[in-house]
Design a binder for these strands. Structure first.
Lengths: 161, 161
DNA sequence: GAAAATAGTGGGTGGGCACCCACTATAGGG
DNA sequence: CCCTATAGTGGGTGCCCACCCACTATTTTC
C-alpha cells in the first residue's frame, strides 16, 4: 500500500511542520486517535475506558475495596461507584460488603468479567496493530518502552515523588 | 527529586500490568496528559488547541482561504469560522474577502500573531521537556521519529491513501 | 439567467470526562 | 457515648470536542 505517487492536494495530511516539530503535539494527536479507536472498540460492548481499567485492575490485583481502586487508578470515587454499578449489573464484577469494615464494598471480577477482559485486550491489540502499522516489531517495542517510561515519569510528577 | 525510597502504598501509580502492556493504552494515556498540559498553557492565553494549529498553518503555508485550512487541518468548517473569528478579533489574524472569488475569506497571520505563535511554541517545548523528562536527547529524537511515522500512517489510513 | 455547486456563518446537539457537593452508613478515638 | 474520620452513593456542573443543519452569498455550469 501507499506505493502510488503522493497527491498532496487531496490529502487530509500536510499538517504544518511547525506542529509536526512539537513532540507534545504529536503525542497529543496520536494519543487522541489511539484513544478514540480504543473507545470505539469498547463502545461496541457498551463500555468506556474506565470499565477496561477497572476490570484489568481487579484481574491483576484481585478483589479489593473501591477505595483501593480509587487510589490505584486515580479515578473519582463517585465515578467509580457508577462504573462498578454498571459492571455489576452486567455481571462482570461482584460487589460484596466487607464484613470486617462494613463501610467498604469489595469488588471482584467474575468469570464472565475475565472473559470480557480477554476479549477487550484482543481488541486493544488489534487497534495497536492498526495504529502502529508503519512500525516493525522492534520499533514497536522501542516505542512501548519509551512510552512506559514517559508514563512512569508522569506518575511520579503528579504523585509527588 | 524522586531520590527517596519508593513508597508503593501511597502512590497513584501501580496501574495494572495488563493495561501497561497495551501500547494503545499507554499512547492514549500519555497523549491525554500531554494534551492536557499543552491545553493548560494555551488556556493561559485564552486559546485552545485549534488556535495553535491555525496559527501554525498560516505561518507555515502563508495566507489562504478557510476552505484550505479546513482541508489541511481536518477541522470542521463551522468550527474554523469560530476560531478564525476569535483570532481575528484578538488581532492575531486578518481576514479579507478574496476578490477573485468573493465567496472565499482569505486568512493571514499578523505580526502579533507570529509573535504569539513563537511564544506558544516555547510553551509547547517547555511541556515537552516536562513530559519527556525521563528520556535523554537521543531517546527523545527516537520517540519523536516513531510518533511522526505513526501519525503519518494514521493520516494515510483515514485519508484513504 | 436559472440551476447547481461552493464558501462561510450561526446555532445547536450529544458524548465523554473530570470534578464537586451533600448525604448515608459505618468505624474508631477520646 | 459523642465526635470525627472514612467509604460509598446520587446528583449535578462545566469544559471540550466533534458533528450536523439551515441559511446567505457567490460562482460556475449549461
Amino acid at each position: 500500500m501507499a506505493a502510488m505517487a503522493p497527491d498532496t492536494s487531496d490529502r487530509p495530511d500536510g499538517l504544518p511542520p511547525t506542529l509536526l516539530d512539537l513532540t507534545t503535539f504529536l503525542l497529543a494527536r496520536t494519543g487522541r486517535t489511539a484513544r478514540a479507536r480504543l473507545a470505539d472498540q469498547l463502545a461496541e460492548r457498551g463500555l468506556r475506558l474506565w470499565d477496561l481499567a477497572v476490570l484489568a485492575a481487579l484481574a491483576d490485583f484481585g478483589p479489593q475495596a473501591q477505595r483501593d481502586l480509587v487510589h490505584r487508578l486515580g479515578i473519582d470515587p463517585s465515578d467509580l461507584a457508577k462504573v462498578a454499578d454498571q459492571l455489576g449489573a452486567a455481571g462482570y464484577v461482584e460487589r460484596t460488603r466487607d464484613q470486617r469494615d462494613r463501610r467498604r464494598v469489595s469488588v471482584a471480577v467474575t468469570a464472565t468479567g475475565r472473559a470480557l477482559l480477554a476479549e477487550l485486550e484482543g481488541r486493544a491489540r488489534a487497534v495497536r496493530d492498526e495504529v502502529l502499522a508503519p512500525l516493525d516489531a522492534e520499533e514497536r517495542r522501542t516505542l512501548h518502552d519509551l512510552l512506559l517510561r514517559v508514563h512512569q515519569g508522569m506518575a511520579e510528577q503528579s504523585g509527588g515523588g
